[in-house]
Every structure is written in structure tokens, then in C-alpha cells.
Design a protein around this nucleic acid. Sequence first.
RNA 1: CCGCCCGUAGCGAAGUUGGAUAUCGCAGCAGAUUCCGAUUCUGAAGGCCGGGGGUUCGAAUCCCUCCGGGCGGACCA
Length: 568
Amino acid sequence: MTDYASTFRRAVQDAILSAAEDLYNAGEIPAVPTGSFVLETPADRKNGNLSANAAMAWARELRRPPRKTAEALAAQIAASPFGKQNFEKIEAAGAGFLNFYFGQGYYAALLAEVSAAGKAWGRSDYGQGERINVEFVSANPTGPMHMGNARGGALGDCLAAILEAAGYSTAREFYVNDAGNQIEKYGMSIDARYRQIFDPAVAVPEKGYQGEDVAVRAKSYAAIHGDALLRATEEERKKTLTDYAIPLNIADMHSMMDKYRVYYDTWYHESALYASGAVDAVIALMQEKGLTYEAEGALWYKASEHGGEKDEVLVRANGIPTYFAADIAYHKNKFERGFSRCINVWGADHHGHVARMKGALDAIGLDGSKLDIILMQLVRLTRGGEVVKMSKRTGKAITLVDLLEEIPVDAVRFLFNMRAPESQMDFDLDLAVEQSAQNPVYYCQYAHARICSIFRKLAEEGVLPADWTPAAGLPYAERLTAPEEQELTAKLGTLPSEIIEAAKAYNPAAITRYCMDLAALFHKFYTACRVRCAEEALMFARLTLCAAVRDTVAGILTMFKIDVPDSM
RNA sequence: CCGCCCGUAGCGAAGUUGGAUAUCGCAGCAGAUUCCGAUUCUGAAGGCCGGGGGUUCGAAUCCCUCCGGGCGGACCA
């Protein structure tokens, strides 16, 4: 793994262990300690850049006051070549913490790493190319996409991007529910809307989809084909209208996702599972394995014996398989396509489905633990302090289309990734529409634009040599001694591990936050340290730092498919 | 009744493999620009980390319990 920061942390841990051995050899401590300890970044920088609790963790084992052990370790490491090169100070503190303060040698070496990586800084091969399928949005093609789909889109897409940055090989997938009960319901609804054109007395069935979008489809069909369908049977009419409308709805979802900058590798159609016989096959498989029984005319799956709360119907009394049966076939198919892990982004209202889905995979001989479900809490819209109720049925819900008409894609993608998936969020439409400084995405973009402006200005005025590159500043990197310079450099250093942690936790919000923190540290640096200064060596060193920040911010925003303006 | 998520400053959140004086933004208060972009920065103020009990050197973090909010518990998806 080409990750300077974590390689360095391991080196520090090794240094502590080796110092402990030295102490033992010198007869200072009674044994070579074996207990594990933690190396962490203290919340308060006054306690160093890195802190180890080794002396405390070893206190019992060595039967020695931790503070005393820490002092001996600190002195030992400080005297070593590794210690001299990288640390300004190593000290024992508090109850026995071992605190490390980075020295200029460390910062200079780190900055060289970041500069060499450019916009790729932060990426690692941690995931070893493991193939992961990320399924998200998967909206029904029976109506407009809602705010849950919007959050799921931003979350799933950025999560996939983070996994890629952490070295995984990801595929983005959209599961199109173009079969089953809701399609029946859609047929019923569009049939009513079609007949309504010619007879206003016809009403949409109470259980049907009430949205205007269905009427729009019916009208556009009638505009082309007229009233001929009125003379067909109800079944023919429903089928014809459905076959006409659903592909159009799916095409709309494609273009909507394009606008949202979400590009899927696969649009997997539920209907394909039926057409290929995969649904019947998985039902047959479950029957063979004795996982089913018949009752009240339906075929049941013994879910309660496999992690579910209660048994579930696989095939209804009317002979039609349930969505659950299709979903088992679908996930079986996914694993058969060679993914070692599948991640699904679901709305929290589907949580009841999680245990039985994983259990079903185990039951048919797959590994349910390789399916990870992200239960995303639903979004609540507010406008003027009032909650805006979402409802597909009223036809007045705020859709993804509406949202992207009101708010720039950059802001939507960023804002939806500012909260961990499992936290509930209110989306304040009034605030989000504001393109003001309050918007965090502008704060990050501005940091980038500001840096570009520095380079622009210096080039215009001929202060910078025409052939100047950040590499030219590296020999002077040890000139960066101000706290603001060192804090900023240290923050750059943590990105690789931040991305790995975000990937492991499935939490893109950690990276949007990182980006804001980095931008904030840059602005502090900018205020405290003049880049354009009299001393050329120092200016070059600062320009190198600026370029590293510029490229790192650009790398993150680009990863999230957010624009990176040179000026605003 | 059962299950899942959430509860941290006026508001929105971070921190949850147990660590030092609990972090950040917004709003409000007081300031900063002859000079690289003020869409910026500095400072002060603001807290029984929902309540209670437990585990231990140490708990926002782990366990129990109660309270409050959201969402589930279809031959819907």
C-alpha cells in the first residue's frame, strides 16, 4: 500500500516496540512487553500529532508506573535516528501517554509525497481490487423519483467513488422493478387515465397511482394512437399501455440520473429474472432444500428458521411470485456475476427486509454476511419551517426533477453527503436554494479558486519563473515552520487513512467533512502566512504547499463529481 | 406489544474498536483588510453528551432500564 501516513504510523509503532526492547536489554524494565497498544491522533494538538498509550497498556504487565515507562521510552526513541529525523519533541504526559510532535523533517517528506501524487493523493490499493457491487436508488418505474431516491443517489454514487479510491473495484447498479405487483397497479392506473380522456366520469382506482405523470403518459399514447384501445379487452389495454409507458418512465430515470451525474454500470431489469426463469429456478431450489411449505394455497418460505421474524410468502395463491422471491433470485444472480461483496442502499422503511434477505441467502447456500445493507434514514423536506409531506399518491410531492431544477447538482450531491446515512435529515429547501457562503460546497470550491488565483496573479506579474513546478519548492519544504503551515501539511497527510476508514464504514460524510476541514485550515494558513513574500525560498515552499492543497481539494471534489472552479 | 435508527450548546452536526480540558458549523456578541480574492480570518460566550443504574484506573463511547422522536411489523415493495 502506497500510503505514506499509515506506513509512517507503523514505523512509529515499531520504534516504540524496539525502544522497549532496548530498555529491557539495558535492564531498565523486567520484561519485553507483549500487550497491544493504540497509536492515535489526539483530539487536542497540544498533546502532540501522535499519541501512544503503550506505557499505560503495559503498566500491569511490567508492574511499573506508566509515567516512568513513558519517560524512558520517550528518551530512547528521541535519541534514535528515526526519532531525530521525524520528531521535534517526544514526551511523556498525563497518566503515561507518549506524545510525538512532528518535526520539519517529517513535514518535508510528507509534502514531497503529496506533491508527487497530485490529484491522486489519498488513493490507495487497500481494497486489493476486490469486486464490490453497489446497488442504489433502484426506484420503481411507476412514478417520479422522490427525495429518498435523491439521497440514495448521492450517497451510493459517492460511496462507490470512495471505495474505488480505497482500491476496490466497484460496479454501480440500478435494479429496475419492471415486473410484479406494482406494474399491475400501474396498468390499472394508466388504463383508468386512458379511458378518462374519453369519459371524464372514469376515476383512478383508490389503490392505483394517482399521480399526474400517469395521465401524461395516457394522453401522449392517445395523441398518437387515438381511441382504438377502447375497443380492446381490458387485459389488452392494460398490457399495451404498460408496454408503452414503462420504457418511457425508465428512459426518464436514465436521463434523470445522467443529470445527477450518476452513471451506472448496470441497469438490471427484474423482468429479466422472470424471462430467464431465474425466479422459478430459485423457488425450485428452495423447495428442493426443504425450505418451503404450502398453506392457504400459497407457497411459504420458512424464514423464521433462517433469521427472519416470521415465515414469508414466496408464491401467492394466485400463482404469482412475490417481490421477495424475485429479490432472492436477484441477489443470487449478483453473486454469480462474481462480486465478492454486495452493498445495497435501502430506505430505512425496508429494514424489516434485511434479516430475511440475508437469511435467505444463507439458506440457499450463499453467504448472507457478504451482503451489506445500508439503511438510509428518510429525508424530510422543510420549507419556511414547515414540513413538506412527500406522497407519491397526491402527485404534489417534490421530486428529484424539481429538486435539481431548484438547486445546483454540486450542492445537492455535497449536502446529501454531509450526514452519515443512518442519521435522519431535514433538507431545508429554502436554505439549499441559497447560493451563499453558508453552503459548505462553496466554501471548499472557494479554497480551490483562491489558490488558483494566487498562481494566476504571480504568473501574470512575472514573479514566478515560467518553468516553475511544485517540485521546485520541495528543497525548501523544511522552511515551513509556522503552526498554520504544519497543521495544514499534517491534515493532508491523513487523507489516505480517512478514505480507507470512510470506505470501511460506508460513510462518504467523513470525506465531505475532511474537505471542509482542509479548506478551513487553508484559509487560516492564508490569513497567517503571506505566500507572496520577499524570501524566494520560503515563497517556493509555500507555493508547493498551496499546490498540494489545490490538487487534493480538486481530487476530492472530482471524486464526488462536483465542479472545481478556478475562479468563482 | 415486538423490531430497527436517532437523542451531544438556541439550531444543525462530529466524536461511539473505552483515554487527556467533549469538537465543528450556523445564529447572536466583540474584532481584523494600505499588500496574494473578506465567498476569508481572530476572540469571547454558550454543555447534568435525553434521565437513572452498572462495568473500571478511566464512559458521550460498553451493559441494563426508563423517557422522547422517526420508521417498520401485508399473499405491498
